[in-house]
C-alpha cells in the first residue's frame, strides 16, 4: 500500500469515527441531557422513562438521520457524476416535487384510508417514482437520450409540480394546508419503526449497489465518449444510476420530507477534501451526509428548546454558510 492509499483509508476511518461520535452526542443531548455513563446504565437497565426517550425516540431518529443523510448525499454524488454538472442534486430531477405533490393530493383528497399510517410515505414514494419515470420517458427518444435534455425536463417537471402544489394549497382548508406544510418542511421524527428500518436498509443496499458503478463512474469523469472507448456500457450505467438515485431520494423524501441541501453540498465538500475518485467519494459522501444531518438535527432540536426548528432550516443555513466559506477559500475549480 502506498502512502496515498494509507491516507485514504485513514480518512474513511476518521469519517466513520466522527459519525459514531456525532451519533453518541445525538443520543445524549436534547430536552434532558445524559452523560455517556448514564446512557450505558440506561441501556443496561432497559426500563424507565429515560430508556423510553433514548431507545424509542432518539435512537430511531439517529438511524433515520444517518439513512436519509447518507441516501440523499449518495444520490447527489451519483447524479453529479453522471451529469458531470456540479449543480445537480437529487431534487433537480423533480423527485422532491413529485413526492410533495403525491403527499398533498393524499392529504387533500383524504386518501389515508387506503394504506392507513403508511399512506403518506407510500404516496410520497409513488409521486417520486412517477415523476422520475415521466422525466425519463420524456427525455429518451428512440433509445437515444441527451443528458442535458433530461436535466431541463427534470427542472420543468419540478416547476410544474410546485405550481400544482400551490394551486392545491390555495384552494384547500387551513387544516390540510397545515399538514402539507408540516410534511414538506421535513423532519426526522418518525414514530413508525418499520419505516425507519426500511429506509436504513434500503440506503445501505443502495450504498453497496453504488460500488458496482464506481469504476464506470470514474471512467465517466473523462466524458461519455471516452468512457465508451474504455468499454463502459454508458447507456446502461446512466440508466442504472438514474434509477438508483431516484429510489434513494424517493425513499428518504417519503419518510423524512424534503430536507434540502445535503445532496448538493456534501458531495462537493467531500470532493474538495479527498478528490474525485468515486471509489472513495461514494462511501465518504454517505458518511458525510449522515454526519451533517445528525449535527443539523441536534441544532434543530436544541436551539429553541423545548420547541424544535424544521431541520431543513438548519441544513440550509449552516450548510450554505459553511459551503460558501469553503468554496471561496479553496483554489480547486468545480
Amino acid at each position: 500500500m502506498s502512502s496515498k492509499h494509507i491516507k485514504q483509508v485513514f480518512f474513511i476511518a476518521i469519517m466513520f469515527l466522527l459519525l459514531i461520535t456525532v451519533s453518541l452526542l445525538a443520543l445524549s443531548v436534547g430536552e434532558i441531557n445524559f452523560t455517556p455513563n448514564e446512557i450505558l446504565k440506561i441501556f443496561k437497565n432497559q426500563t424507565g422513562i429515560e430508556y423510553m426517550i433514548i431507545h424509542n425516540i432518539r435512537l430511531p431518529r439517529i438511524i433515520l438521520g444517518i439513512a436519509v443523510g447518507g441516501a440523499l448525499s449518495l444520490s447527489g454524488v451519483l447524479l453529479q457524476g453522471v451529469y458531470r454538472n456540479p449543480l445537480v442534486e437529487p431534487y433537480t430531477l423533480g423527485i422532491s416535487g413529485g413526492a410533495s405533490l403525491g403527499v398533498a393530493i393524499t392529504i387533500i383528497f383524504n386518501l389515508s384510508f387506503v394504506f392507513g399510517v403508511y399512506m403518506l410515505p407510500v404516496s410520497g414514494f409513488i409521486g417520486a417514482v412517477a415523476t422520475t419515470f415521466l422525466v425519463y420517458i420524456l427525455a429518451v427518444r428512440k433509445n437515444y437520450y441527451n443528458i442535458n435534455r433530461m436535466l431541463l425536463i427534470g427542472v420543468m417537471i419540478s416547476f410544474m409540480s410546485s405550481s400544482t402544489m400551490m394551486f392545491l394549497m390555495s384552494t384547500t382548508t387551513a387544516e390540510n394546508l397545515n399538514s402539507i406544510i408540516f410534511w414538506i418542511m421535513g423532519s426526522l421524527d418518525e414514530p413508525n419503526k418499520i419505516l425507519v428500518k426500511a429506509v436504513f436498509y434500503i440506503s445501505l443496499v443502495g450504498l453497496a449497489t453504488s460500488y458496482l458503478m464506481a469504476n464506470p463512474l470514474n471512467a465517466l469523469r473523462l466524458g461519455e465518449s471516452k468512457a465508451k472507448h474504455l468499454g463502459v456500457n454508458t447507456t446502461f450505467i446512466i440508466r442504472a444510476i438514474f434509477i438508483l438515485a431516484s429510489i434513494l431520494t424517493g425513499v428518504s423524501v417519503s419518510v423524512a420530507g424534503v430536507i434540502g441541501f445535503v445532496g448538493l453540498i456534501i458531495p462537493h465538500l467531500m470532493r474538495l477534501i479527498i478528490g474525485s475518485d468515486f471509489r472513495l467519494l461514494l462511501i465518504s459522501s454517505f458518511l458525510g451526509g449522515g454526519i451533517f444531518i445528525l449535527i443539523s438535527d441536534i441544532i434543530a432540536r436544541t436551539i429553541i428548546a423545548p420547541n424544535e426548528l424544521p431541520i431543513g432550516v438548519i441544513t440550509g443555513m449552516i450548510g450554505g454558510i459553511v459551503f460558501i466559506i469553503v468554496m471561496s477559500r479553496s483554489k480547486i475549480k468545480i
Binding site: 460500488y211 470514474n218 471512467a219 469523469r221 473523462l222 474504455l230 478528490g275 474525485s276 475549480k333
Partner: peptide, 28 residues
C-alpha cells in the same frame, strides 16, 4: 482523440483507466 479532456486526475490514475476493460465488476 484530438484532446485528452483533462480533468483533475493524476497522470498515473489516468493511465490506469486504460485497465478498465480488464476489471471485474466488484474489483475496486
Amino acid at each position: 482523440t484530438q484532446t485528452a479532456d483533462a480533468v483533475d486526475i493524476s497522470v498515473e490514475d489516468y493511465v490506469l483507466m486504460g485497465r478498465y476493460p480488464y476489471k471485474k465488476k466488484f474489483q475496486l
